[in-house]
Design a protein around this nucleic acid. Structure first.
Lengths: 145, 145
DNA sequence: CATAATCCTGAGTGATTTGCTCAGAATAAA
DNA sequence: TTTATTCTGAGCAAATCACTCAGGATTATG
């Protein structure tokens, strides 16, 4: 029931971008040094982030990455889904309400996993990069849904 | 961010015991057939459940397993912790409030993981086997804390 | 224009975890 | 005494994780 390092790194990297928003793009190398994460591993992570349209890459010398939209509009859930896939504790509660389990009609536990999934989403989808950058998590005033 | 099959199987197996509580012990073989889970794998899982004092084994012919305490007093969290270890999305929020991360004092994301952990625990620790067996998850009347 | 700094792409790899199986001893009811 | 069960410990193939390696594409800067 652990998040991979990929997911953790992704959030930390995005936070670096969020804290320097609106300035020039930040090179991956800088993020790597600031957060002490392998640059080559970070590159892989940014592939996913870019595909999910959460960041934009700027090529060439003095290029780098910047957020594709304001930090207020990017949640932890967006980031984790981009690099780790759907947020679901078990496969059978992956898609909206449909599943491929076979025993779903008799499966009592499925309701538990749905609840778990929903409570996880509730936290991740209401916490934005802006919330984190502003230290708003410590006071409890995160965005409402 | 997925639960292992071990965790899922454990909850399902415990639910079988919960639904037949107070009768004779149930053989692992029966659980295996009812839930379509490999008997040998189940044996491994019951090692953990027994160590955590959630079930009692009764040896010999016509032996089996039974819950070590009433189904009202066993939560999904108890079961998952028994077979999967602590419920924590990342290592750095494992122990009560102490950690071994090094960068914890400067780590903004840690607060997010704490929130995530707490929301997961909130669901898992308030859902008992009795709740599930009674279908109480569908109506919303689970145990309060 | 040349060069250097960056993003971008795709493949490869050792270690760990997962999801089991296999073999057999210990115990107790029938 | 036989048979049904729990219990114990080892082993193993496949998948996943957490990276590394090698090199091409693009563009600012000197």
């Amino acid at each position: 029931m652990r998040l991979s390092t990929k997911g953790q790194y992704a959030v930390r990297a995005m936070l670096v971008l969020a804290m320097r928003e609106a300035e020039a793009p930040i090179a991956l190398r800088q993020i790597s040094e600031l957060e002490d994460i392998s640059a080559q591993y970070l590159e892989q992570i940014f592939v996913d982030l870019r595909k999910a349209k959460l960041v934009e890459g700027v090529r060439g010398a003095s290029g780098g990455y910047r957020l594709a939209r304001p930090a207020e509009q990017i949640t932890a859930g967006d980031i984790l889904r981009a690099v780790e896939g759907p947020i679901a504790p078990v496969e059978c509660v992956l898609h909206g309400d449909e599943e491929a389990c076979g025993r779903a009609h008799i499966c009592i536990t499925r309701e538990l996993w749905k609840r778990l999934r929903d409570s996880m989403s509730a936290v991740l989808d209401t916490t934005t990069l802006a919330d984190m950058a502003a230290g708003r998590l410590f006071t409890g005033e995160t965005r409402e849904v």
